[in-house]
């Protein structure tokens, strides 16, 4: 049941819009790369490279925002709008319905992220000079794990944004008759509250390890950051904390949702 429901939601969220958007983004990334290769030959080609690079950055960010927005619209419409008359009368447990919606959004976000990452790889990693530098970095101990942790952090941050918005929507429906300004307010407050708590905990934990504390309180260059074990430690602990926070958000939102709905 869960998968079946998710399939329909994903079809709606990603559907034609995001598919075309992804194709366009990747195409722009490719063109940026191509123009980079040709840029030494003429000024206007150099200009085109800059334009397409810029366009790619916009698209990469836009596709993420789009995925987030579409998944929230899908959530709100299928759970609180007219189509909710169908959703809530399906022979599925309320818990499962919520899980399906939340996961569909997450999968869509991951899809958008993957597209952006792929585009980035096309524009940057295929360049010989960048690849050389990358190889050098990769040779150093601990770079791979640091990179993985950074990826995890990005993913979990996006998920935190998504789940904060979902929780805000659920609370907004239950307490404020689903009025959008209140849902947005709840979402923003929840997001900052959770982020503050996690950051606070990281800071508190850092007091146990003076080197880590130093990392947080003193300026450093990017190169050095990659080298330090303390950085990895911070990222690792942060990842775990955000994982817990995101799970907490999901469970809290689901709990409130399962208390019941009042559909207009």
């Amino acid at each position: 049941m869960l998968k079946k429901l998710m399939r329909y939601d994903l079809q709606w969220i990603i559907g034609k819009v995001l598919s075309y958007y992804s194709a366009a983004t990747l195409l722009i990334a490719l063109l940026a790369r191509v123009f980079h290769a040709l840029s030494s030959q003429a000024f206007f080609l150099h200009l085109l490279e800059k334009i397409f690079s810029g366009a790619f950055i916009s698209c990469g960010i836009a596709i993420l925002i789009n995925a987030l927005m579409r998944s929230l619209v899908c959530f709100r419409s299928t759970l609180y709008g007219d189509p909710s008359y169908l959703t809530h009368t399906l022979p599925i447990k309320r818990r499962t319905v919520f899980t399906a919606k939340a996961l569909s959004g997450t999968v869509s976000l991951m899809f958008a992220l993957a597209v952006s990452a792929l585009g980035l790889a096309i524009t940057v990693l295929t360049r010989a000079d960048v690849w050389e530098k990358a190889k050098e970095l990769l040779r150093q101990r601990g770079t791979v794990s640091t990179l993985l942790l950074i990826c995890a952090a990005v993913v979990l941050q996006l998920v935190e944004m998504h789940f904060s918005a979902v929780f805000g929507l659920v609370l907004g429906h239950r307490r404020e008759k689903g009025r959008i300004p209140f849902s947005i307010l709840y979402s923003v407050l929840i997001y900052f509250a959770v982020s503050a708590v996690v950051t606070g905990l990281l800071f508190a934990l850092s007091l146990l390890k003076p080197e880590v504390h130093a990392l947080l309180t003193q300026p450093l260059s990017t190169q050095e950051m990659f080298k330090m074990e303390e950085m990895r430690f911070l990222l690792a602990v942060g990842t775990v904390l955000y994982l817990l926070a995101d799970s907490g958000l999901f469970l809290a939102a689901r709990h409130v949702f399962c208390k019941g709905v009042d559909v207009e």
């Binding site: 909710s84 008359y85 809530h88 009368t89 208390k259 019941g260 709905v261 009042d262 559909v263």
Partner: peptide, 9 residues
């Protein structure tokens, strides 16, 4: 009717 269909609490 909505209460019978779990659309209202």
């Amino acid at each position: 009717i909505k209460l019978m269909n779990d659309l209202l609490t």
